[in-house]
Simulated assay, not measured.
Amino acid sequence: MLKNLSIQSVSWLSSLVVATIDALSTFNLILFCIFSCCTRLQKCPTTVQDFLVLGAAVKHGQVPPVLATRLDKAINCWKTHQSAKIIVSGGIVQKAKESEAEVMAAYLIAHGIPARKIICETQALNTWQNLTFARQLIKPQETVVVVTSDFHVLRARAYARKMGLNWSFISSKTPWRYCPLTFIRDYLGIIRDHWWVFCGSTLLLLLVEFILK
């Protein structure tokens, strides 16, 4: 079919494909950013038995700003649910000496959380494993609130639904200077996990545009 097309037609089709993908990607990214920001409005449930804070890379044993906002959110919520436990999840990455969970636990203790209220899950290396390994530490009937960054809620919640976990999610606000990188990175992660939806939408939009042309 392409052999019978003129150079101008091929060029037009190429431009149409590029423009469609660009427009769809931009539109979806905007929707993703709006949804992520709206997750900050989610309030903590009145009954909580476990807070699960999802880990992020630590640097030289220190909690970076994005992870600090997650922990601060958990601390503020725990103050009104002091009977709850806080599970911190994250393993050893990039040849670190301590696991993410251990560094997170130290941060919580330094900010007034009793050590007896903290449970460390030190094996997880990604979001899927965060949820999988943490589930093994939680009784099925317990009420769980997952604390993560605003840009991370959509992907983490999608994983939880796949696992059949009916957990609540609350998010922390990402520091402004980290927004471009973190939002785009997680958006690309969602496209990777749901590539068939993105490809199907693109093909459908291309078909509509081709017919209208």
Rank of each mutant, 00 (worst) to 15 (best):
V208M: 07
W196S: 13
I184M: 10
G200S: 04
H194L: 13
L181K: 15
L206T: 02
H194N: 14
L207G: 06
L207S: 13
V208T: 08
R185K: 10
D186R: 01
T182W: 06
P180V: 05
F183M: 07
I190N: 04
D193F: 05
C179D: 00
W176K: 10
W176D: 08
Y187V: 02
P180I: 06
C179R: 13
Y187D: 01
I191H: 03
S201W: 07
C199I: 14
H194I: 08
L205I: 08
L206A: 06
L205G: 03
L207Y: 09
Y178F: 15
S201G: 15
L207K: 07
L188Q: 08
I191F: 05
V197H: 11
R192G: 04
V208C: 06
R177W: 14
R185Q: 07
L181H: 15
C199V: 15
C199D: 07
W196P: 01
I191K: 04
R177A: 09
T182I: 12
D193M: 12
T182M: 13
T182H: 08
L206Q: 02
F183E: 00
R192W: 10
L206N: 01
E209K: 10
P180Q: 02
D186V: 05
L207I: 10
L181E: 13
L206P: 00
S201C: 15
C179E: 06
W196A: 10
R177Q: 12
F183R: 00
W176Y: 11
I190C: 10
G200M: 04
V197I: 15
L204S: 10
R185L: 04
L207M: 12
T182V: 13
L204M: 09
T202A: 14
L203F: 09
